[in-house]
């Protein structure tokens, strides 16, 4: 992999990741394309620019950690890990098939480079805080990034973790809410509205940065700001579009948990050419 800070180069990697997401879920005939597509810029900015990591040394003690708490967005993480060189690209299309390392939700048993097994929503922030506490005890300066879904933060454990992190001044953890406004049953605001979301995180003692989650320079700036904030954790509320990059998938509840048909794969890949 070649790290870069150039937004245009990062955007081109994003396009490649989106193509993988479409072909993987298309081949699997199941999976969660919508919430994978909404998180592409966040994941790519972290892996190609912000995070300290080395695919040749997945167990490097000083590496930054990434936890996909919204585990159903596994395709975006798998595509990134494969493009970085952690895992093979050739087998991405075995997603969800028996024996594949690309399990339905991230599974550490199959991919040791994964920091945690996730898939049950609401749990990843606690794990990330635990890692951040270990860094502090060991005097290491790595940071831990946790990607949360918007629907996911309806889980109570998220707020237990949020309260803990600010009280214990865990400033080496950074949460990102992929606020794509849709969850399985429909629009978040109709299922269980999160608003006023920034106020909620502020009330829990977090430094809040609200931004467009597809704006790469804005993400770069926000991650830098997060790293500079001391004494409290930071959350990025990243406003995103579910299904981003594929016109017929954008803002469509249907593609939360439904894979594109072969015809839709073809159409989508044309748009992502």
């Amino acid at each position: 992999m070649e790290r870069t800070k150039d937004p245009a180069a990062l955007a081109s990697i994003c396009k490649q990741i989106r193509r993988h997401i479409i072909t993987m879920t298309g081949a699997a005939k199941s999976g969660h394309p919508g919430g994978s597509l909404s998180a592409v810029e966040i994941v790519v900015t972290l892996y190609w620019d912000v995070m300290r990591h080395d695919p040749a040394r997945p167990d490097w003690p000083d590496r930054d950690r990434f936890i996909l708490s919204k585990g159903h967005a596994a395709p975006v993480l798998y595509a990134a890990l494969a493009e970085c060189g952690y895992t093979p690209k050739e087998t991405l299309n075995t997603l969800r098939k028996l024996g594949s390392i690309y399990q339905g939700h991230p599974d550490k048993r199959f991919i040791p480079a994964l920091e945690a097994s996730t898939g049950s929503l609401g749990e990843g922030l606690s794990v990330g805080i635990g890692m951040a506490l270990a860094a502090r005890l060991d005097g290491r300066d790595y940071r831990t990034y946790v990607l949360l879904g918007d629907g996911e933060i309806q889980e109570g454990q998220i707020w237990e973790a949020a309260m803990f992190a600010s009280f214990h001044k865990v400033d080496n953890v950074c949460a990102i809410v992929d606020y794509n406004k849709l969850q399985l049953d429909g629009f978040v605001k109709e299922i269980m509205d999160l608003e006023p979301l920034a106020d909620k995180w502020r009330a829990f003692g977090w430094h809040v940065i609200e931004l467009d989650g597809h704006d790469i320079p804005a993400l770069q700036k926000a991650f830098a700001e997060a790293a500079s904030v001391k004494g409290k954790p930071t959350v990025l509320i990243a406003h995103t579009v579910k299904g981003k990059g594929v016109s017929f998938m954008e803002n469509s509840p249907k593609y939360h948990g439904v894979a594109p048909t072969p015809e839709e794969v073809e159409l989508a890949l044309k748009e992502l050419a």
Binding site: S126, I129, A134, Q157, E160, A161
Partner: peptide, 26 residues
Amino acid sequence: PDRLFECGIAEANMVGIGAGLALAGK
């Protein structure tokens, strides 16, 4: 005192934090 993490009355979060500490080598 630095190695005892008081989690408050929040057992689910405590287990998650424990898992994170373990995954980071503790």
